[in-house]
């Protein structure tokens, strides 16, 4: 009896998650479609290039081939219909399946994002733990503010010109894969690390002002023990919820960083597709990053509940 009730509740939870996920993806795809159609310009002109001498008839044929001559709602419906069946379509530009293009590039972007995220977490934890007290705190606050406010393209350019061109430590062309990922990862990680460190430190400060921290000290705990056994977990609990947003900033940053460092990856594909009005590819990128967001958020939800057991009840009530 209880098992069937459990299964039913679990299934209901899974169904709700999938329903919400579908809704999010639909909204993202629709928005991308509308924005791309609202921007003036003709994808066929872009495809053929400015020097093309194709006749208007030939252009009309290409347009009909791609379904671009049909009214907008029809185009929208056919895009959506194909996506529901899992077919992302063919790129206008490359004449290859969008799913092939994206899976080729996925590895590079994931390597970059993972490297950046690990780096950001390490930097943030280090900064937050070492610099909670004394004059170091002022220095850390200022540095983090700078890291958060500096635009990624600027940081990326500064890093590239100093370490790649002048010092030649991390060549942009050639070198090992590890060498090539370091500078982009740093550029991408800095703003994320700044935000993480600030939130982490704030969370620990908040926890330290709570009565339970006084209680821990009254038990004879040292500051170090208070931090490691009590405050850190509170800091992480407040940081985790931010991770979904930070993942978004990684994706956005990837577009710029991949371009500056001439790296392959989803970001560059997206940039190219948008400038070329390659609608199927843009939609593909939107779907891919949407799914990425959903997965990250689901993982964050599970992790947050593991770190802060109070959420288990609150979220279910």
């Amino acid at each position: 009896m209880t098992l069937s009730a459990r299964t039913r509740t679990a299934l209901r939870g899974a169904a709700r998650f999938l329903g919400e996920a579908g809704l999010v993806l639909w909204a993202a795809v629709t928005l991308a479609f509308l924005v791309l159609k609202a921007v003036p310009g003709d994808p066929v002109d872009v495809m053929l290039g400015p020097l093309s001498s194709a006749t208007p008839e030939a252009r009309a044929m290409i347009r009909a081939d791609l379904g671009l001559d049909k009214p907008l709602p029809t185009q929208y419906a056919s895009h959506l219909g194909r996506m529901v069946t899992g077919d992302l379509g063919m790129s206008y530009q490359q004449q290859r399946p969008v799913s092939d293009i994206l899976t080729e590039q996925l590895g590079a972007t994931m390597a970059l994002a993972a490297a950046a995220m690990v780096l950001a977490v390490v930097l943030a934890c280090g900064a937050a733990l070492v610099t909670r007290r004394g004059w170091l705190r002022g220095v850390a606050d200022a540095t983090e503010l700078l890291a958060v406010s500096a635009p990624v393209f600027w940081t990326a350019l500064v890093l590239a010109s100093v370490f790649s061109y002048q010092l030649g430590w991390f060549p942009i062309v050639g070198g090992t894969a590890a060498q090539r990922v370091i500078l982009p990862a740093i550029a991408l990680a800095l703003p994320v690390a700044g935000v993480l460190a600030q939130v982490l430190r704030h969370g620990m400060d908040q926890a330290e002002s709570q009565p339970f921290a006084v209680t821990a000290m009254a038990r004879g705990a040292s500051h170090r023990r208070l931090t490691s056994h009590h405050l850190m977990r509170h800091g992480f609990a407040s940081t985790l919820t931010l991770s979904g947003f930070l993942f978004g900033s990684l994706l956005g940053g990837a577009v710029i960083v991949e371009t500056v460092f001439a790296r392959p990856g989803i970001g560059r594909v997206a940039l190219g597709a948008i400038t070329n009005r390659d609608l199927p590819v843009v939609m593909g990128v939107v779907v891919f990053s949407g799914i990425g967001f959903l997965i990250i958020n689901a993982v964050v939800d599970v992790l947050a509940r593991a770190v802060d057991p109070r959420l288990r009840k609150a979220a279910d009530a």
Binding site: P211, F212, T215, D308
Partner: peptide, 16 residues
């Protein structure tokens, strides 16, 4: 000397 803080409801670490 052990000390039991004023507000028992918030004097235990909620995450432990």
């Amino acid at each position: 000397i052990a000390y039991i803080a004023q507000d028992a409801l918030v004097s235990l670490d909620p995450l432990r």
